[in-house]
């Protein structure tokens, strides 16, 4: 334990430096935690809005699809959507937010999303696909934001633990050690001074 250290000036100096370092680390980590929290909460709010949008749009899409399914045979419906003419072009980048690596996703649908003959399908299928298409961009953004929230939450937890360890364990320990050394040193000095005085008395008495 830190409390049982040699009471020397060297040790005192070393401990004081460590304490200074710990305080600086603590301040930095605290700033990091606050900043992460800011980003995190912004992202959380973003996911809430997007979730709502996505859910509503997809719900509409499925409702339209239900009508389409009622009007078409399952085979015809499956055949209508079985050979897509569109494709998804996606790019992924990794972004570093306060040392947290967060993926950035971009994706868009290229080409014709209605790959079927208009004569064989109902208008509801068109609407369903169009709604899904509209939801797609939000879906991608939502996936990205939710992933970011997850990663940030982990990092915040880690950082908070470190801040607390410094604040409530390491820094008080160092402070205690510094104080006890300082006290021992001054005690030694006093005893030395009184010894010198005593010796002086003895020498003078001769």
């Amino acid at each position: 334990m830190l409390a049982r250290v040699n009471a020397t000036r060297m040790e005192l100096l070393k401990l004081k430096n460590r304490l200074k370092m710990a305080r600086r680390g603590h301040k930095l980590l605290k700033d990091k935690r606050d900043e992460l929290m800011k980003v995190f909460l912004a992202r959380v709010r973003e996911t809430r809005g997007l979730r709502g949008d996505v859910e509503k749009t997809l719900e509409r899409a499925y409702r339209e699809l239900a009508v389409a399914r009622a009007a078409m045979t399952p085979g015809a419906l499956a055949a209508a959507v079985s050979s897509p003419e569109a494709e998804v072009v996606a790019t992924v980048e990794l972004e570093n937010v306060m040392s947290v690596i967060i993926p950035r996703l971009e994706a868009e649908v290229k080409g014709n999303p209605h790959p079927y003959g208009l004569g064989y399908t109902t208008a509801e299928l068109d609407t369903a696909v169009r709604e899904t298409h509209a939801a797609f961009r939000s879906l991608v953004k939502l996936a990205e934001a939710e992933r970011a929230v997850e990663l940030l939450a982990e990092e915040i937890e880690k950082t908070r633990r470190r801040v607390n360890a410094l604040e409530y364990v390491l820094i008080p320990q160092l402070q205690g050690a510094v104080r006890s050394i300082a006290m021992k040193l001054s005690e030694m000095e006093r005893s030395n001074a009184s010894r010198l005085m005593k010796i002086k008395d003895i020498v003078r008495a001769k």
Partner: peptide
Amino acid sequence: EAAAVFRPLG
């Protein structure tokens, strides 16, 4: 159902 609406998008 999901397949039907998402597959056309590629």
